[in-house]
């Protein structure tokens, strides 16, 4: 963090918080009029340096710029199909819960949920994150919201000139990202296009995956993690492979 001005870094933290907030909103519940209106009013970045990010924004733009009259109903149906398993064979879906992807039997409310709940409590964010949503604490939207809250804290610490607090907060984000987000969210993002019939949620899943990879690299650079097994891409791939093996063994 020495070579980056604190002011710029605080602004960067704010941008991260906004991004996590938007991604969280996309997955926590069905899209409503307000969310669609907000999306249609945004400028969709291009030339970000990430082909996946640019592609995801283009897909969102193409879908939203000529919305069908029944877009809210269509997206609600697709949300239920993609994330709740409604109307799919054997009720399969891309369930956005860490427990489903990391537990042996693919169930909800497993060890992952208990671990993230403990982390939320340790940071004093349990009530904030679970209100008004009534989901399991290991829901992707809540985990992204947690990262959003910590990014805001980092921003506030940097604006106050407290580098130590900001660095500690960034370290917490990096650890949480590695232990509870990248270990399953990338595989989940690959599952979303298998169930969605509209391009809206696959585009958001692609955007989420691309942003998580970039943010993990950013956190590594900021916090200065040097251990090989803390590298987000390698660690995530290894952990993802283990998660896939667990799921394949369960399905066999």
């Amino acid at each position: 963090m020495e070579n980056i001005a604190l002011e710029e870094l605080a602004q960067l933290m704010g941008t991260r918080a906004h991004m996590y907030n938007m991604l969280s909103r996309a997955f926590v519940a069905e899209a409503d009029d307000e969310f669609i209106r907000q999306l249609r009013s945004m400028h969709f970045p291009q030339g970000t340096g990430s082909a996946a990010t640019d592609s995801a924004y283009r897909q969102l733009y193409a879908y939203l710029r000529r919305p069908a009259e029944s877009i809210i109903d269509d997206l609600a149906v697709d949300y239920a199909r993609t994330f709740l398993g409604v109307g799919t064979m054997e009720s399969r879906a891309a369930f956005p819960f860490e427990s489903v992807y990391t537990s042996e039997k693919g169930l909800l409310m497993q060890e992952a949920r208990d671990e993230v709940l403990a982390i939320y409590r340790a940071e004093g964010l349990e009530q904030t994150l679970n209100n008004p949503y009534n989901e399991g604490e290991d829901h992707l939207a809540l985990e992204l919201l947690f990262l959003c809250a910590l990014a805001k804290r980092s921003q506030e610490a940097l604006e106050a000139g407290d580098e130590a607090a900001a660095e500690a907060c960034l370290l917490t984000q990096g650890n949480f990202m590695h232990d509870h987000v990248l270990n399953w969210a990338l595989e989940w993002a690959a599952d979303v296009p298998k169930y969605a019939q509209l391009p809206f949620y696959p585009a958001f899943a692609q955007l989420t995956e691309a942003f998580l990879r970039e943010d993990a690299a950013l956190l590594r650079e900021l916090v200065g993690a040097e251990e090989d097994d803390r590298a987000a891409d390698d660690g995530a791939d290894t952990t993802n492979e283990a998660a896939q093996e667990t799921r394949h063994a369960k399905e066999a």
Binding site: F44, Q46, Y61, L64, R65
Partner: peptide, 15 residues
Amino acid sequence: LLSGSVYDQEGYLVI
């Protein structure tokens, strides 16, 4: 799909 797209001064897509 992107025919007729509108861009702002930063090259971002605008609806």
